[in-house]
Design a binder for these strands. Structure first.
Lengths: 345, 345
DNA sequence: CGCATTACTGTGTTCGAGCACAATTTATGA
DNA sequence: TCATAAATTGTGCTCGAACACAGTAATGCG
């Protein structure tokens, strides 16, 4: 299992390393019989070029444009930075530079503006969270025409062939259902969508479908599954009414990271017997997980999504590896006892 | 944010790269004022050597000895190979070679024999699963005296300072308790230890402690927590008696990967109302998870443990990075809905 | 046949760090 | 003062891949 170099192969084939190099890179100008001989040798000993030596020579500077929501506006995105930094640290030997553009996750206009800025920075590749389906579709098409590879994470834009890293949202809904079902098999269930402008409608619908599908496929479930849509600004009042209007409620599933709003209300209304499942390890959520008001959190792991997304792009740039089309992360179930290690940076 | 090389620094300091090199490696023979000047420059621009170029020159062959239980005897260990191969693939640019020695996890004598063979292979570093406390302590001490760094995973030998990768077993027990408690808050609970020769007594005890601690700290839990110890060979009969002797049993916690034995029995005895929590994604366990007889599995992730253990050792060898003393993996909670992505290699 | 063109092959340099060794400067002693 | 030792500093080669360019052989054509 010796490591073969170009020089070794040249010696074995009785030619010079230049010729071997020409064969490897299909640069032509090689006699057919020589080429066949070298190619046979290459496959025989399964030659793998030393990627490190290759990059020592080709020390280019790579620019990566990053377009993600502003964590100042939605704390959910804060941990992405950790993931990005991890990936950069892992490839610190290469000259990879990032330009990060933060957009307001409630504003499609801002998304487009920041995207313009991103374009001006002339990135070699782009990593983005394409929150808005319509706008993202257009933007992604544009990048495709410019031949700039794009990696997306968090939510998939199915109209585009861009690489995607995230979770199976349908399955995620099923997991929530399974969890609620296992801790409370009587009473009604509610699916709660909390969103400023229903921007994330598609994800939430997928989760709802999965959730409902789980219960529909049960033999013996006869209770009702309700849906409650709340705008961010009207959250508290509307939620209070909803809870009080449905005294038979035993379980609630909040389809994004805003479960702490519901938890706060359940505590103030003394309805903590209602089981609650939500998403993401925000401080507020974790606190309610520890008090027991939230029973389970599903971890969407934005940190890991950003990390992997960036890592794949860098590996494409420096090692010429193909970018995986789609990668679905495992979905972590979190309760008060296993949460701690997931919080570390 | 330019990437500085030794040459750049030499130029800035008005000396040759040889001198800079001597300063960086404290090789002496440098005039004090020159050394100060160079050192100041180094810190000022935060010089980071190009690890890749460094290793291009120092292309040594590294030998890693691996001592793990034989997956033919206990299938739990099978996925370790995947983790090891992942780590090797990640560092395929370097000449890292492994020598794997498999030992019978039920035999301390075999552990010692294989260890002798391992020693003869003259490894630079060692990765091992130190199943047997007494024997492992002795072996680890020996390696320390030989100055061979060792990484351990799965279980920690606290008497040694060897690097350890694994999970917090006490917390793992608490997680099992929390899960059982959340799906069944009435009736008695049983902790089931299934082990051929009580070899893993220490881990299982830690898990039991965590499990009991969780329930002891509850305000309103009045039921009994039983312990059931079974030898592998007598499993079925003794377990059947135990279950029938305790009609009030509502939850069972199997402290290792052998929950499928209990599940099989619960099905044949028509006691599937008893909630069951166990460990590890063995085929048998996953099947019972899907039928619903096992409610949750706790994922000890031996694959990731082996991967990280090997990765840290390789990074020590090729990049001279310090080996982390202790790394506790997050503990994954698995149910029938989120199991699939965890099974992929 | 001679010269040009094509077809092919080999050589040498580069990347950044490491290190041996050569070269230079400074110090020491008779 | 000068040889010699000691201290300090600079030079040049290496690793593996990439590629420019030089070199060689074969063929074409007048």
């Amino acid at each position: 299992m010796k490591k073969y170099t170009i020089k070794d192969i040249a010696q074995l084939a009785g030619v010079s390393k230049g010729t071997v190099d020409r064969v490897i890179h299909n640069r032509g100008n090689v006699a057919k019989d020589v080429e066949d001989k070298v190619r046979a040798l290459l496959t025989e000993i399964n030659y793998q070029p030393n990627l490190i030596a290759r990059n020592l020579k080709n020390n280019k500077i790579f620019n990566i444009g990053i377009l993600i929501p502003d964590p100042e506006i939605d704390a959910y995105w804060a941990v992405c930075t950790d993931g990005i930094n991890s990936a950069l640290a892992e490839f610190s030997a290469f000259d990879v530079r990032i330009n990060t553009f933060l957009y307001d996750p409630t504003s499609t206009a801002d998304f487009l503006t920041r995207n313009e800025q991103l374009l001006k920075s002339e990135p070699d590749v782009i990593l983005m969270v394409p929150l808005f389906y319509k706008e993202a579709t257009r933007v992604l098409k544009h990048y495709q025409s410019l031949n700039i590879p794009v990696g997306t994470f968090n939510n998939q834009i199915t109209s585009s062939s861009a690489s995607f890293i995230g979770q199976d949202l349908y399955q995620s809904g099923r997991i929530a259902a399974k969890l609620l079902h296992s801790i409370s098999d009587k009473g009604d269930m509610a699916i709660v969508h909390i969103d400023e402008k229903y921007k994330n409608a598609v994800h939430m619908q997928e989760k709802e479908k999965g959730f409902r599908n789980y219960f529909e496929n049960l033999d013996n479930f006869e209770n009702t599954i309700l849906t409650c849509k709340v705008k961010y600004i009207e959250t508290e009042d509307k939620l209070r009414d909803f809870i009080n209007d449905h005294p038979n409620l035993e379980g609630m599933f909040v389809t994004n990271s805003k479960a702490f709003h519901v938890a706060r209300l359940l505590e103030s209304e003394h309805k903590t017997h209602i089981k609650l499942v939500g998403y993401d390890l925000l401080c507020d959520n974790v606190n309610y997980l520890n008090t027991g008001t939230i029973d389970f959190l599903i971890h969407q792991n934005p940190r890991q999504q950003a990390y992997l997304g960036l890592k794949y792009l860098i590996e494409y740039l420096v090692f010429d590896k193909p970018i995986p089309e789609k990668f679905l992360l495992p979905i972590d179930i979190i309760n008060s006892e296993n949460v701690t290690p997931f919080l570390r940076p």
